[in-house]
Amino acid sequence: MKLKICGMKYPNNILEVGSLLPDYMGFIFWEKSARYFDGVMPDLPKSIKKVGVFVNESIPVIEEKIAKYDLQAIQLHGQESVAFCSELKTKIDPSIEIFKVFSADENFDFSILKPYESVCDYFLFDTKGKLPGGNGTTFDWRILEKYPSTKPFFLSGGIGIEELDSIKEISKTNLPLYAIDINSKFEIEPGLKNTSLCTDAIYRVSTEN
């Protein structure tokens, strides 16, 4: 199981967390976010995939950020259509991964996933809330028992140290849980990660492999 640490903002903190070697680090390019990233990207270990997080953004802007920050993955956190994902896939380097995010609650309709299977590499399930992400709450993971796809997915939404232990049970099932996405529960303030908590998270996730 992989680990993504999202909402990185400050160069020194990025380097500190990068030294822990998470699998992915996320940078939010949505201006309304308290974790909006518009700074200098420090050099990170090659093993870390840099993820650009976008909300209903245009393809030219996404392409610009890919070039500027050498992104290895794109996370689409808005209402991006299948057609949009398909067009994006044709315009960016095929090695760049595409994550399509879905906001989940107890009424989530899993049938909407099917058309996206061919136009993205991973799904990401986050908690449905007032904001596109970073709401700091979990959803009822039992709904994942209805997951109809073989597409690997990221699990996000209010995950803290305690929740990491609960995720062990999901990882023991046949669900294609690929990675855990952590953010607000591992922060000192928005965008500033607690490296001690991040170290603990990486240890817990890595010992599950």
Rank of each mutant, 00 (worst) to 15 (best):
S95E: 14
A104C: 15
K100G: 01
D105R: 04
P94Y: 13
K4W: 01
I159F: 12
S166L: 11
I62D: 09
I92Q: 05
I59M: 04
K4G: 01
M1N: 00
K49S: 10
G158N: 04
T195Q: 05
G52R: 06
K32P: 00
S103N: 04
F123K: 06
I96R: 02
E169T: 13
K68S: 07
V53K: 03
P45D: 07
E80M: 07
M8E: 09
D70R: 14
F102A: 09
Q75K: 08
G191T: 03
D121T: 14
G26C: 05
I98L: 15
H77G: 12
T90Q: 11
Y24T: 02
K146S: 12
G191E: 04
P22R: 08
S149N: 11
I62W: 10
D93G: 03
Y24M: 07
R35Q: 10
S103G: 02
L44K: 13
I159D: 09
I74D: 05
G158C: 08
E162P: 13
I14F: 08
L177C: 07
G26S: 04
I14A: 08
T127N: 11
S206I: 01
R142T: 15
G134L: 07
L175V: 03
G18K: 08
L113T: 03
S206V: 03
W141K: 05
E208C: 09
T199F: 13
E63L: 13
E31G: 01
P148V: 07
I14M: 09
H77F: 14
